[in-house]
Design a protein around this nucleic acid. Sequence first.
DNA 1: ATGCAGCCTTCAGCTTGCTGTCAGCAAAGC
DNA 2: GCTTTGCTGACAGCAAGCTGAAGGCTGCAT
Lengths: 222, 222
Amino acid sequence: MRILLVEDNQQLGDAVREQMLSDGHATDLMLSLAEARACLSTTDYDLILLDMMLPDGKGILLLQQLRQREDRTPVIILTALDQISDRITGLNAGADDYLVKPFDLAELSARVGAVARRYSGNPNPALAVGDLRIDLSNRQVRRNGRNIDLTPREWALLEALLQRLDATVSKSRLENCLYDFGAEVESNTVEVHISRLRKKIGREQIQTVRGIGYRIASGHPA
Amino acid sequence: MRILLVEDNQQLGDAVREQMLSDGHATDLMLSLAEARACLSTTDYDLILLDMMLPDGKGILLLQQLRQREDRTPVIILTALDQISDRITGLNAGADDYLVKPFDLAELSARVGAVARRYSGNPNPALAVGDLRIDLSNRQVRRNGRNIDLTPREWALLEALLQRLDATVSKSRLENCLYDFGAEVESNTVEVHISRLRKKIGREQIQTVRGIGYRIASGHPA
DNA sequence: ATGCAGCCTTCAGCTTGCTGTCAGCAAAGC
DNA sequence: GCTTTGCTGACAGCAAGCTGAAGGCTGCAT
């Protein structure tokens, strides 16, 4: 699991990060909302640990922004004992759980594990390719935290390419995949759709293998 | 199979390496994380045997880094009996199996064989020649962890040479292979393409047999 | 029915990059 | 040193691929 930890108390942050690492989770520690936003714009996380009191604003702002753009990444709120209202508004804003400082690291582990389990059993495991998160069952693609809408043809193409990750898929195969049987196409429809798909998900994601077809690379093939 | 063994206990390392070699696996023994990283950046392995306690850090760091960048190379963890938590975090971090020291070499062989078998079912067996990894079905060549893109002609040449590994393939044969039937060529196209291919995959890979043709040596002569 | 919106195909012009040719240089053999 | 053979950089022609625009189709709402 990849975790984003937003906490301005360096000491606490390090301790939590340590704990998460030893639980086997890759963890990025950020000290402010601004830094956190920067991370979120380039990386997708499986879980966010969010402190409420940060130097440049309340953590809940970040949470609200996430939910507003339909990013459902699980969030666990870290809050001080005397700020009970934060907990309520936090949960209302779409947090998955909260922890009251000071908390036991073991308890944190447990909560994180619980949230992770809640989501790992979910029926839509996100496939990570390049900087894309692809939810095959829900036909959703996310990139840099942003949802991308694909048309049926675009999705069909993407699926066909993903089915044979790291392999080069020939244009004719893609064509067959777009038009089940028969239904001749005489022009460069595949190219056109590839072009549009690229525009949406990022040019680099799909490589052209000249004379053969197209390929999506996982980045680290077997 | 090519195995990376990371183990700082020289004696144990040598013993394991010996065993692996006699099982027919090319095995590189590295004594530290730093060395191991260096190897991984230049070579692709089929399996990694990773000790947990190393002079420059915990082996699990390496494992996490691998998985983080979506490298799914199978990893078997070697850990001491008293470090049970290592085993758990190791498996959580994406290890494929673990062995508790001291272990029986026969058991190691068995585990290695099991992991290898689990992965051998994959549909694209990579052919290893020199320091190249060649995926015949996907038209992919990797070297030092880097993907190399070949044009159709270059691939045709490479394929023709691989088809008769360790044998010298005549220029006229290669020519026929580039231009199926007819299609006269009057210049030194084969030489030109060989030159270009060499530039991409490494000069040493293809040997010139003056007056006859070219050859690719397997590095493991019969 | 009519209008509208979204998706798809077609086409044409443009860009990219593969490939054959050749010329000049390097290496090997004598 | 001379000849033969192979190597490689440069270049131009061309095929493959890219993409914007236009028009058609379908489904939906009015």
